[in-house]
């Protein structure tokens, strides 16, 4: 892994998916060995299929959610393969970028 400023380079994958798909995506993260993730429910915005309202008062499944996961580069390819399969048939976006973390052991299974 590259070392910069004492930090360790890893890969950050951010996805915006339907609230209904959050459990699937979080299972996917576990399958490839991610140790955790961050979820922000009820995000709003404009996309390919029109405007998406943010928080709905009585429905947590029909909105959009933003999930962020950080993992080692050698695991990222597997996750991206699964996510590409997912986005082949469902709406949402995936953004992949390099990131640096201070405690890499937190992001890898022992």
């Amino acid at each position: 892994m590259d070392e910069h400023w004492g930090l360790t380079q890893m890969v950050k994958v951010e996805v915006v998916v339907n609230g209904d798909d959050v459990s699937l995506i979080s299972n996917l993260f576990s399958d490839v060995g991610a140790t955790g993730f961050t979820a922000v429910p009820n995000v709003s915005g404009l996309g390919h299929s029109g405007f998406h309202q943010g928080r709905l008062a009585f429905n947590d499944r029909s909105g959009l959610a933003l999930l962020t996961v950080v993992l080692a580069k050698e695991l990222a390819g597997s996750l991206i393969a699964g996510l590409r399969e997912h986005f082949a048939t469902r709406s949402g976006v995936m953004m992949v970028s390099d990131t640096w973390v201070s405690r890499p052991e937190y992001f890898q299974q022992s």
């Binding site: 699937l24 299972n27 996917l28 490839v32 050698e74 996750l79 699964g82 399969e85 997912h86 048939t89």
Partner: peptide
């Protein structure tokens, strides 16, 4: 191992789709 992980991820999504 990498192929195995990729296959897991792909199967997970395909099961959900099915």
């Amino acid at each position: 191992d990498t192929d195995r992980l990729s296959e897991r991820a792909r199967l997970r999504v395909e099961i959900d789709e099915a």
